[in-house]
Simulated assay, not measured.
Amino acid sequence: MSNIDRKTSVLAIMVAHCAGMVDMIALPIWMGVLIGQYHFNSQQAGMVVTLFLAGVTLASLGSSSLFNRFAAKPFIVAGFFASALAFVCTYFNTALPSLSVLHFIGGLATGIALSFTHGTIGLSKNPQRLFGMAGCAIGIFGIIFTTAILAVLARYQGAYFFIALALIMVLAGLVTVVFLPDIASNKQIAFKESDSLVAVQKTKKFSKAVWFCMLGVTVLALNQAMNVSFYERIGVDRQFDQHMISLALIIYAITCIFPAPLAAYLQNKINPLYVLCIGPLFQAAFSLMLTQTHHLTLYIMAGSGIAFCIIFIHTFAFGLLAKMDPTGRAVAATPAMLMTGSAIGPILGGTLIQISGFQAIGFLTLCLALLQIILFHLVRLSLKPKQNIPVNLTAS
Score class of each variant (00 low, 15 high):
Pro335Ser: 00
Val219Met: 02
Asn388Leu: 11
Ala322Tyr: 01
Ala19Met: 01
Met1Cys: 12
Leu378Gly: 10
Asn271Thr: 07
Asp182Pro: 00
Ile313Met: 12
Ser65His: 14
Leu171Phe: 11
Phe116Leu: 03
Gly122Asp: 04
Leu96His: 09
Lys323Phe: 03
Ile245Cys: 10
Phe286Asn: 05
Gly173Val: 09
Ala302Phe: 01
Ser115Val: 03
Leu123Ser: 00
Ala209Phe: 04
Tyr299Leu: 05
Thr110Met: 13
Cys277Met: 15
Val48Tyr: 02
Tyr252Ala: 04
Ala302Leu: 08
Phe318Asp: 05
Thr8Asp: 12
Thr218Asn: 09
Phe67Glu: 00
Lys204Ala: 15
Ile29Met: 06
Ala264Arg: 00
Arg155Leu: 15
Asp241Ile: 06
Met31Pro: 01
Gly357Phe: 07
Ile254Val: 15
Leu197Phe: 12
Val88Ser: 07
Phe316Val: 08
His17Gln: 11
Ile234Met: 10
Asp237Glu: 13
Ile278Pro: 08
Gly235Ala: 04
Met214Asp: 00
Gly341Glu: 10
Thr218His: 02
Asp195Gly: 14
Ile140Arg: 13
Lys384His: 08
Ile168Met: 05
Leu34Arg: 06
Gly139Leu: 08
Gln37Pro: 01
Arg238Lys: 07
Leu348Tyr: 11
Pro181Ala: 03
Ala209Cys: 03
Phe179Glu: 06
Leu288Gly: 09
Ala209Trp: 04
Gly319Gln: 05
Ser382Gln: 09
Phe141Asn: 10
Ala95Ile: 13
Leu371Trp: 01
Gly36Gln: 13
Phe92Gly: 08
Ala59Asn: 04
Ala84Gly: 05
Ile355Pro: 06
Leu180Pro: 00
Thr146Leu: 09
Ala264Leu: 04
Val175Gln: 07
Ile121Cys: 00
Ala333His: 06
Phe282Lys: 07
Ala148Leu: 13
Ala260Tyr: 04
Ser124Glu: 03
Cys18Ala: 07
Pro28Arg: 12
Phe376Arg: 01
Leu338His: 14
Gln242Leu: 11
Gly106Ala: 04
Phe258Ser: 06
Leu370Trp: 09
Leu338Ile: 12
Arg129Ala: 12
Gly216Phe: 00
Val379Asp: 03
Ile138Leu: 10
Ile347Gly: 06
Phe358Gly: 06
Ile163Thr: 11
Arg69Pro: 02
Val219Gly: 08
Phe258Arg: 07
Tyr38Pro: 02
Phe206His: 12
His17Trp: 13
His314Asp: 15
Ile163Cys: 00
Ala12His: 03
Val217Met: 10
Gln37His: 06
Leu153Pro: 02
Thr176Ile: 00
